[in-house]
Nucleic acid binder design. Structure first.
Lengths: 192, 192
DNA sequence: ACTAAGCGGAATCTCGTCGTCCACTTGGGA
DNA sequence: TCCCAAGTGGACGACGAGATTCCGCTTAGT
């Protein structure tokens, strides 16, 4: 591959990651091309179709998230702190990572590919472990699970284009509100 | 208007309300027609275009929500209880009301029409009053506002079609998690 | 200097919907 | 009962948005 071509490939994946983060998984190819400063033709030279490009982005994201989760787990002694830190990281405003969580949603679209499935499964398992620990430590409500966290991450970070503007601007704020509601003792007794 | 036509008109609005609740504000006219058991032509006989039909649904919803809010306010002595009850009502699973909240989102699409704007504004004001009261009573965090509640209602009830299935199935569960996080004292001190 | 790899982006193709149209029913008044 | 204007359904044509293709022009690299 020619040097300039390799350079473009990088630009494309980065641009795609950004655009997807901003406009959701359905961002048009043309928007990505424009951001990367290339023509759509160039996108198709490297990726057979849109799905392939998005998958590449997903791949990239999955690894990034896995690293972030591990880093958070390492840095915080208590599991709750690690969860808090990770969620905050994943939804940081301004971060392209916004729909980093995209790596999570397409359990169908992306995890289907064997290469991704493994990484994703591992990630989920380690996240689940963190949740179990937090619950064992008595810092997290027992009636919520990793799945809840993952779903919420999806809700607030994928499809930012249809979130009310203030929410899209700072999903972390809402996710943290959510986490506060998940702390041990936060549950409203039924009948309230 | 002929009796059968009037009957159809009712069926159409009801069907539209259901379909919109399930598939979001962008539900295709044909889906609505099918649900109502009529042809698309009949929809267009009563409403000049899609926007008019959706507006009719919005109109219907706004009034329903206003009533529900007042009912909740009346039933609960404390403001917090009223808020909790209203949110639960608005997001009750199985209720067509899912995107009842639609009445809320299109601050642009619907509230623009003078007739709706008034009702909506009144509704928001009464809701805001409830929030202020809850905060004054010391049962709600001071760092959240009605807007937050409204946005979240939107997030969880409009566009159900792109929410992860478990979330779409019971948005109330997540909204209540959120409310738990909004209770006075739930806030995590910064630095945690 | 030469040429195959690369490139841009206009043109084309696909889809999903909207909204129209008209031949065919039917309610309900005479 | 008869009649016909009101009402109906759903095929059909126009569109807009976006994906994908194509090809003449450019340029890295020998």
């Amino acid at each position: 591959m020619r040097a300039d071509a390799r350079r473009n490939l990088t630009k494309i994946v980065e641009a795609a990651a950004e655009v997807v983060a901003e406009r959701g998984v359905n961002a048009p190819m043309e928007a990505i091309a424009k951001r990367a400063g290339v023509g759509v033709g160039t996108l198709y030279r490297r990726f057979p179709d849109r799905e392939a490009l998005i998958a590449a982005v997903g791949h990239h994201y999955i690894h990034t998230m896995a690293e972030a989760l591990d880093a958070a787990a390492l840095r915080s002694a208590d599991a709750w702190g690690a969860i808090w830190e990770f969620i905050s990281w994943a939804a940081a405003p301004g971060r392209t990572a916004l729909s980093t969580a995209l790596a999570v949603l397409p359990a169908e679209a992306i995890a289907e590919r064997p290469e991704f499935a493994g990484v994703r499964a591992g990630w989920v398992e380690r996240f689940a472990e963190l949740v179990r620990r937090a619950q064992a430590e008595g810092s997290m409500r027992p009636d919520v699970g990793v799945e809840d966290l993952i779903h919420l991450l999806n809700v607030f970070t994928c499809h930012p284009e249809q979130l009310p503007a203030p929410v899209a601007a700072d999903p972390g704020r809402y996710l943290r509100l959510m986490l506060d509601g998940m702390k041990a003792g936060a549950a409203t007794p039924s009948g309230a």
